Amino acid sequence: MTANTILLALAPVFFVILVGYAAGRLRIVENHHVDGLNALVMNFALPASLFVATASAPRSEMLEQAPLFLILGVVMLLVHLAWYFFVRASSDVSKADAALQALTVSFPNLAGVGLPIAAAVIGPGGTVPIAVALAAGSIIVSPLSLIFVELNSRKPKEGIPTESSQQIPKALLRSVTKPVVLAPAVGVLYSLAGLELDSLARTSLMLIGGVAPGVALFLTGLILSSQPFRLNWKVVAATGLADVGRPVLTAAVVFALPIPIETAKIAILISAVPSGFFGILFAVNYRLDYAAIGSMVIASTLFSIVTLATVIALLFPL
């Protein structure tokens, strides 16, 4: 039963990634110029989906998810900082590339893998924890990564030096006003205010937001088809930290705190979801190297078949 749950959750994910990969390799879709698809996902579809997911949650449920938000936010932040400083100290990776690698390792693929896994294991109620986890990652580690990228990928105009004290506020403003960062934050505030998203607004937003996971996975496969898979020590280390280190760290945190056992199990399950594709999409957007990030996503997703099966078998026996 557990193996069937994992198969039903992961097989569609791999299928869509493979479709995108095949489309790129067979030149059915151009895989070197994906700006249009990237803009669709990051500026429209995914923000709409994140807003609906968070704004639709009742205020009481959102308040109940506060411990989950804090736990996952802290874990993602610790993993993000750990990988950033580790890869900077052990290789010649630039600060911008290291930040996006850290985002990839710390922020699970909640939209593509987390939602179907939660639906299969937890049931319909799994949508709210996934939305909260998405909000935590989008509000905490995504802006942090974008600040590093903004500070280190934009060159000052010739002859006009820019003080770091001026750069940081500007980078922070650019990062937090990204639709993919702003949408879940506004959605959480909307829910906490006790407002209800009417059916017309929800239906309208989900008409485009509903395509976010599929298009994002297709785009991931399309981008990966343009560069080879490279298995090296960084990819192995990143996979180990994402698929093993992240859920183990979450387990250590939740079992040290007085929180309900169900919240603890959900937090560990979410942390066991493989590396996400935000790093790839941001790298494309900023014209940065995404070869290493793509290899990390592939390796993490493949290895997560083992780690997710283990977590589900231990915590959610059927």
Rank of each mutant, 00 (worst) to 15 (best):
I6W: 01
L7F: 12
A11P: 11
P12W: 00
V13L: 00
I17Q: 01
G24L: 08
R25V: 06
R25F: 10
I28N: 05
D35A: 13
D35H: 09
A39Y: 06
L46F: 12
P47K: 04
S49M: 15
V52A: 04
V52I: 09
A55K: 02
P58L: 14
L63T: 04
E64R: 12
E64I: 01
Q65F: 10
P67Q: 11
P67K: 09
F69H: 07
F69A: 14
M76D: 14
M76Q: 08
L81Y: 15
Y84A: 03
S90I: 08
S94L: 12
K95E: 12
A96W: 00
D97W: 06
A102F: 07
V105A: 12
F107N: 03
P108Q: 00
P108C: 01
L110V: 13
L115V: 15
V121P: 00
G123Y: 08
G125M: 05
G126T: 07
T127L: 11
T127P: 02
L134P: 04
A136Q: 04
S138A: 12
L144G: 04
L146Y: 03
V149K: 10
V149T: 14
E150S: 11
E150T: 02
L151S: 13
P156H: 02
K157L: 13
Q166S: 13
Q166W: 07
K170C: 02
S175K: 01
S175V: 01
T177W: 02
G187K: 00
L192C: 10
E196Q: 12
E196S: 14
E196K: 12
L197M: 14
T203V: 09
S204A: 15
M206D: 07
G209A: 09
P213L: 00
G214L: 02
A216V: 00
L217N: 00
L217S: 00
L219H: 09
G221I: 09
S226D: 15
Q227A: 15
A238H: 10
G240H: 10
P247L: 09
P247M: 10
L249D: 02
T250K: 04
V254S: 09
F255D: 10
I259G: 11
P260K: 07
A264M: 02
L269N: 01
G276K: 15
L281Y: 08
L281R: 08
A283W: 02
A292M: 10
M296P: 13
V297D: 07
A299R: 05
S300Y: 05
T301Q: 05
T301A: 03
L302Y: 03
F303G: 02
V306M: 05
V306F: 08
V311A: 05
V311P: 04
I312T: 14
I312K: 03
F316T: 08
